[in-house]
């Protein structure tokens, strides 16, 4: 299978108060076409930093990043890569549909086609009838669904997601998992999904890469081979889920403790 994202000995050093702080160290990973990989780790372990370097949002201090076999170019992010922020970054001055259609507008897609595709996306996200609303009048979950659609509308084959549901309550989060699973099981994008929520990682991914506390290094990998299509709610009640959960939980727990001491 083709490798779509690859990092080789990736590292990042930040200058904090005049001292160098190693945030990410020697991370080599490879993500295959159509694979859903979760990057799991305690807060501050550098998982978002890794994602942001791959997304060209941050320069890397050492190592290499290849997308589709090509070293990334920070000045020209690949059109094949979509990014979903942790924070809601919808443009508040645009209506929901103008936000979702934004990338099409940039690409010069004709208004008719834009409207059609935007309507489809609104329906997919369960936002029918909210197209003319401004983001500020939507709930957090609705905004994040709109943000997801804004990224997905240009059909990127690779998706980078930075704790996109981190700020949502449990119930809304499960709803978002359902929406995302629906879309992903149909389109099979290559996904790198950053999270500190083990349940979320297990629900969504094919493989979990567990990072150590700072500096972030790859500690362990786990294959998540639950059958698909998955149901975000009932999956959590299966014995296989419970077994894998407790296996990873212990390993993750050690890192939480280390992270808290550091």
């Amino acid at each position: 299978m083709t490798i779509r994202i690859e990092t080789r000995d990736l590292g990042k050093t930040f200058a904090v108060d005049g001292r160098d702080m190693r945030a990410v160290d020697g991370v080599s990973l490879a993500i295959r076409e159509g694979e859903f990989v979760a990057l799991l780790g305690p807060s501050g372990c550098g998982k978002s930093t890794i994602l942001n370097m791959i997304a060209t949002l941050l320069p890397n201090s050492s190592g290499e990043i290849l997308v589709d076999g090509q070293p990334i170019d920070r000045r020209r992010p690949s059109r094949n890569v979509g990014y979903v922020f942790q924070r809601d970054t919808l443009f508040p001055w645009r209506t929901v549909q103008a936000n979702i259609g934004y990338a099409l507008e940039l690409a010069g897609v004709a208004a008719d086609e834009r409207r059609e595709r935007t309507q489809t996306a609104l329906a997919q996200a369960g936002l029918q009838g909210f197209g003319h609303y401004y983001p500020t009048s939507l709930s957090g979950g609705m905004r994040q669904r709109a943000a997801l659609m804004r990224t997905l509308i240009v059909q990127p084959q690779i998706l980078l997601m930075d704790e996109p549901f981190g700020a949502l309550d449990t119930h809304t989060k499960l709803e978002m998992h359902r929406v995302l699973l629906n879309i992903w099981e149909r389109e099979k994008q290559t996904v790198l999904f950053v999270t500190h929520d083990l349940g979320e990682a297990l629900t969504l991914s094919d493989r979990i890469i567990l990072l150590s506390a700072r500096p972030g290094r790859i500690k362990e990998e786990f294959t998540v081979d639950f059958p698909r299509p998955r149901d975000a709610v009932t999956l959590r009640e299966t014995p296989a889920y419970a077994a894998l959960f407790s296996r990873i939980w212990h390993s993750l727990g050690e890192e939480f403790v280390k992270g808290a001491q550091a």
Binding site: P77, R87, T89, F91, Y102, A103, V154
Partner: peptide, 13 residues
């Protein structure tokens, strides 16, 4: 907002 600028850039602006 820097994130708005990043979002636009990553969406191909």
């Amino acid at each position: 907002d820097r994130d708005h600028i990043s979002a636009a850039r990553l969406l191909g602006a």
